[in-house]
Design a protein around this nucleic acid. Structure first.
Length: 421
RNA sequence: GUGGGCGUAGCUCAGUUGGUUAGAGCACCUGGUUGUGGCCCAGGAGGCCGUGGGUUCAAUCCCCAUCGCUCACCCCA
């Protein structure tokens, strides 16, 4: 017996009954992004592995254990993109977009790949929508980005949202904070978990993110990064908050929020939904003022976020809901095989006139064809039987009223004019 | 990578304390109407009971393994 080939673990098919809500989500995204003057950028699905390790950070989970990488024929290491900011920054630098205009507002959407164990809200191939603004270091840019995020989620009808906000400052103050944190944690080192002990050296800030109860206890009294911000960082952070207040966007200050990607500076934020399970982050992002320079571009401040499209659909509660998108106006019922070419030609004329026409190709019984016409949601059934073909006519039946009349096919223009959909 | 739960029809699920042809609802097909949909009625098709092995006179059911799905840990969108 031949072994059935299934889709790869953590990947899934979007079937016709579900593609409608994806299209709706995509069009809402395009609409909101357009309102904020963001333009779409599309980058390749795979890149040089170095791009991700240099931007996201080699110690992060994404890079250290979640990438789909392979050696190309020339030996260079390539990777299916595990996130999109790196690719967008690469394109920004490669095409010198910063030289074309001082401010670039970009959005993207598409599939990403991370080799994690699948669970609710987490797939190995999943989709993100994101925005990036290059060029402005000012807090109003942060406000705009967060406002865009909120407008989108609101436009999608989502509630039960929580915006967490933090500033992790510039690299200098983070360095000072890192030292202070290590000094604080050192006496507790033996009490920490194995991973936390490892992170004590590699990335102590990540320990703040722990879920272990006894570690949370310890962290309670840890120094606060807010106290280490420079005056400029602090005033930037306060300005961002004042813009959010002006927009009536509620937020929670969370000085322990550490995001799992290394390139962030100053503002970081995350929006979670209480209607999801363990994977509750709908969207996360922040400022990355040094990344463009780190990847070889001219120093360019930037900020952006990425949103998980599957999670948004889950939070909307429509993930498993079937939303058909077919829009049949006319169902062409064919009963006479000698008249098929007449039926095909009539169908083409109707389509050219702008109608959505479904054409029977199964040669089923009339009853079956009429049932199909009814099921399709068509307003009209066009019936072409032996008599009609001989007399060059067509029976037009209104499926709502049940009324029908016979028309000469020669008067196709008049037929089209009298159809009301 | 680690742990829990679950695999019976296209879908949602019954079921057998191990016993002959494994069921229901929805969906599908045909007929009731020699060329007319929805509603109704009658009938039909569709299952290696996830896969492999073991115990047994007998396994969809019990045991083991395996694969798959799922939820959670970790981490993130």
């Amino acid at each position: 017996m031949t072994k059935l080939i299934r889709s790869i673990k953590g990947t899934y098919d979007i079937l016709p009954e579900n593609s409608g809500k994806w299209q709706q989500l995509e069009s809402t995204i395009r609409k909101i992004a357009g309102q904020f003057a963001y333009e779409e950028i599309r980058t390749p699905i795979f890149e040089k592995t170095d791009l991700f390790s240099r931007s996201v950070g080699t110690e992060t989970d994404i890079i250290s254990k979640e990438m789909y990488s392979w050696a190309d024929r020339d030996g260079s290491s390539l990777t299916l993109r595990p996130e999109l900011t790196a690719s967008v920054v690469r394109a920004f630098i490669q095409h010198n977009l910063g030289g074309k205009a001082p401010l670039q507002r970009l959005f993207y959407m598409g599939p990403l790949f991370r080799r994690e164990r699948p669970q609710r809200g987490r797939q190995r191939q999943f989709h993100q929508f994101g925005v990036e603004a290059f060029g402005s270091a000012h807090p109003e840019q942060d406000g705009e980005i967060i406002s865009l995020a909120f407008s989108l989620l609101k436009a999608l009808g989502l509630s039960d949202l929580s915006l967490n906000l933090n500033s992790i400052g510039s690299p200098e103050c983070r360095k000072n904070y890192r030292n202070a944190l290590q000094d604080f944690l050192r006496p507790f080192l033996s009490e920490l978990s194995e991973t936390s002990q490892k992170r004590f050296e590699t990335n102590p800030l990540r320990i703040l993110d722990t879920k272990a109860a006894h570690e949370i206890e310890i962290i309670q009294n840890a120094p606060n990064i807010t106290a280490f911000l420079t005056e400029e960082d602090q005033s930037h952070f306060e300005a961002v908050q004042s813009f959010l207040n002006a927009l009536n966007i509620p937020f929670i200050l969370d000085s322990k929020m550490v995001r799992g990607i290394d390139y962030y500076t100053r503002t970081t934020f995350e929006i979670t939904s209480t209607s999801l399970g363990a994977q509750d982050a709908l969207l996360g992002g922040g400022r990355y003022d040094n990344l463009v320079e780190d990847l070889g571009g001219k120093p360019t401040p930037a900020i952006g976020f990425a949103a998980g499209m599957e999670r948004i659909l889950l939070a909307m509660g429509t993930m498993d809901e079937s939303t058909p998108i077919n829009t049949t106006d006319i169902y062409m019922v064919n009963l006479d095989l000698t008249g098929l070419s007449v039926a095909i030609k009539l169908t083409q004329s109707l389509r050219q006139a702008g109608f959505d026409v479904q054409f029977e190709t199964l040669r089923r019984s009339m009853k079956a064809q009429m049932r199909e016409a009814n099921r399709s949601g068509a307003k009209y059934a066009f019936i072409l039987g032996e008599t009609e073909i001989q007399e060059k006519t067509v029976v037009i039946k209104n499926l709502n009223s049940g009324e029908q009349e016979t028309k000469s096919i020669a008067n196709i223009d008049e037929i089209i004019k009298n159809l009301t959909i």
